[in-house]
Amino acid sequence: MSTDFQQGRTALGARLRELRAGTSQRVLAERLGWQQSKVSKVEAGRQTPTLVDLSAWAHAVGQPALADELAARLQGIESHSRSWRRQLRSGHGPVQDALTVEYERSTVLRAWEGAKVVGMLQTPDYARHVFARYAELHRSPRDLDEAVRARVKRQELLHRPGRTFHIVMWEAALHAGIAPRHVRAAQLDRLVGAAGLDTVRLGIVPLGAEVAVPPANGFWLYDDRLAIVENWHAELWLDDAESTALYRRVWNALSDSAVYGAHARRVLTHARAHLEGP
Results as ranks from 00 to 15, higher is better:
A241F: 02
W232L: 05
L254T: 05
Q35A: 14
L207N: 11
E136A: 15
Y260S: 13
N252S: 09
Q187W: 05
V205T: 11
S2E: 11
T123K: 09
R26Y: 06
S55F: 10
A194I: 03
V200A: 03
V108M: 08
A186W: 00
A71L: 02
R26H: 13
L74F: 06
A58C: 08
V148F: 10
R105S: 13
A271F: 04
E113S: 15
A98H: 11
T123I: 11
T269N: 06
S140W: 01
R184Y: 10
E18W: 14
D189W: 02
D224F: 12
G62Q: 01
V27A: 15
I77E: 05
G208F: 09
L236R: 08
L19E: 14
R85V: 09
V42S: 07
E136D: 14
A271V: 11
A216T: 06
A179S: 11
L221R: 02
L88I: 07
L16Q: 06
L99D: 01
R201I: 00
R181A: 12
Q155C: 09
V152E: 01
L121A: 08
W34F: 04
V108T: 15
S81M: 09
A241S: 14
S37T: 10
D125Q: 15
A216F: 01
N217V: 02
H270L: 00
L268N: 00
V168N: 02
Y260M: 04
R73A: 12
D223G: 10
E210N: 12
T100F: 06
F131I: 12
S106E: 10
R15E: 11
Q25H: 10
Y134P: 01
L246V: 11
A234Y: 08
Q36G: 05
R26W: 06
L226V: 01
E235Y: 15
Q6C: 07
L19V: 07
V117N: 04
P215I: 03
L238N: 11
P206F: 02
Y222I: 12
D53E: 03
V211P: 07
E30W: 02
P180T: 07
F165E: 08
A194K: 00
F5K: 05
L157F: 09
T164V: 11
L74K: 02
V95I: 02
S40R: 05
Q122G: 00
Y247S: 11
D125W: 04
A65C: 02
Q155L: 03
R73H: 10
Q155T: 07
R184A: 09
R248M: 00
S140T: 13
A14V: 12
Q36S: 10
Q122I: 07
H92F: 14
H138N: 05
R225C: 06
R17H: 04
A21V: 03
S55N: 12
G33M: 09
H182G: 04
R201Y: 08
P94T: 15
D224R: 15
Y126R: 10
R86M: 03
V250S: 03
V101I: 10
W112M: 07
R86N: 06
E43W: 13
P180V: 06
L88Y: 04
A172L: 00
A253I: 03
P94V: 12
I204N: 05
Y134E: 13
H166P: 01
H166R: 14
H159F: 11
V250N: 04
E156P: 04
R184C: 03
W34L: 01
P206Y: 13
